[in-house]
Amino acid sequence: MLSAEIIYGLTGVGLFTLGLRATLLQASLLARILAINVCGAGVFLMFVSIAYQGLAQMQVPDPVPHALVLTGIVVAVSATALALALGRRLRESKDE
């Protein structure tokens, strides 16, 4: 019987790798930023799987990785916004 942490952990590994592969393969900046976000989701999934394993031991999942991932989600969206703004500026300066 596969446990939940193994299923979601390996899904995280898969998402990280396919996100990274697409980041290296795609030409368009927007597609790359999207792929990096998928990549990040994979990392979060691995973290939360390890936190979920604490359930057996403590009756609650480990809150420390949860807090780190929450921080990560917010930082990821800020970085996405900055990357998109940089991309827009880059295109505008190319057009000039």
């Binding site: 989701a41 799987s49 979920y52 609650v60 949860h66 991932v69 917010v74």
Partner: peptide, 24 residues
């Protein structure tokens, strides 16, 4: 939510899917 991380589920729905999607 399945992995018993409801704080993350809320943040993901609002930020990861919502705001990031709107930005993109």
């Amino acid at each position: 939510a399945r992995l018993r991380a409801p704080d993350l589920a809320l943040a993901e729905a609002a930020i990861g899917a919502g705001i990031a999607g709107a930005l993109l």
